[in-house]
Amino acid sequence: MSYTASVDKTVCISAGLCVAEAPEAFVFDDDEIAEAVEGHPGLSDEALVELARSCPSGAIRVLDADGNEIELT
């Protein structure tokens, strides 16, 4: 578990795919905007990258252990 995820709240459109696919790793805040749970529980690094790739709005960013952004396209 070395990768970290974050959601750009100005990009998220609340499609809810991350929350539906990985409810332990992503939750909705009070405004129904997705939020990443620290350590992305229940998701491997690979699965996290896969999920971030399929986010419809491209709001999820993934950084590796050294803080480098993972290429998602």
């Binding site: 100005t10 609340s14 809810g16 905007i33």
Partner: peptide, 15 residues
Amino acid sequence: EHRARRRVENRLFRR
């Protein structure tokens, strides 16, 4: 403006 409308409508367009 788009985000606000889409977020409301997305609540319906759920699984």
